[in-house]
């Protein structure tokens, strides 16, 4: 499975980003480049988890407003700026679910289901596709979000850990366990058939 390279940045780019953050701390007008840089990533993260496009744009704006208001608190301590934004996005997203403005939705492409089938060591037949689809819907939120990040958004474990505030190893172990649960569900469904 290929991993999304968006996350990787050279040290030069990280330095540039840090100077941009420092400027934005003094003058909000300098937050613009960061907004431009991360707007699409954050929107896709939010829109991946809901179905209302307009609301996804609103929540994205809300994320950047919060980020701008709290930028003075951000300091680079190993967690990249993008992960900090994702944490705010996660919090805003779940707030939207709690306020019943939006409903939690998992958006999957067939190609992503192929990746999951490979992980389950199963053929990607039409029947298995339906089964995986059903099994995914039975997973708990904490498990589906790991599978979503790893297999649908193709994030590496380091980034998953940073977004979910856990270590890289922990993210790896928990994703493995989520896959195990999916396998279990899949096996159960197969036996019933």
């Amino acid at each position: 499975m290929s991993i999304n390279s968006l996350y990787h940045k050279t040290s030069v780019r990280l330095d540039e980003e840090q100077s941009c953050i420092n400027l934005a701390k003094k003058d909000p007008a300098f937050f613009g480049p960061l907004y431009k840089e991360y707007h699409e990533q954050i929107f896709r993260y939010i829109y991946q988890r809901m179905d209302d496009e307009e609301l996804a744009f609103d929540v994205t704006s809300q994320v950047f407003m919060k980020a701008l208001n709290n930028i003075h608190k951000y300091e680079f301590r190993g967690v990249p700026f993008s992960s900090w934004l994702y944490r705010i996005a996660k919090s805003e997203l779940y707030q939207a679910f709690r306020d019943k403005k939006a409903e939690r939705m998992v958006n999957v492409d067939t190609i992503n289901l192929i990746n999951v089938a490979e992980e389950l060591e199963e053929d990607f037949s039409e029947a298995n596709k339906v089964l995986i689809y059903k099994c995914l819907s039975l997973l708990k939120e904490k498990d589906i979000q790991l599978i979503e990040m790893r297999f649908f958004e193709k994030r590496n474990f380091k980034e998953i850990g940073e977004i979910l505030n856990m270590t890289e190893n922990n993210a790896k172990v928990k994703t493995f366990r989520a896959i195990e649960k999916l396998k279990q569900q899949f096996a159960n469904k197969q036996t019933r058939l």
Partner: peptide, 29 residues
């Protein structure tokens, strides 16, 4: 049960970019 959406049409980057509005973020913040 979680709701799962299969093969939703892909939203292109141009459309997302067209929705950028930094002034709104500045004022909103």
């Amino acid at each position: 049960k979680l709701k799962i959406n299969l093969d939703r049409p892909y939203l292109n980057s141009e459309k997302i970019e067209s929705k950028q509005n930094f002034n709104e973020v500045l004022n909103g913040s």
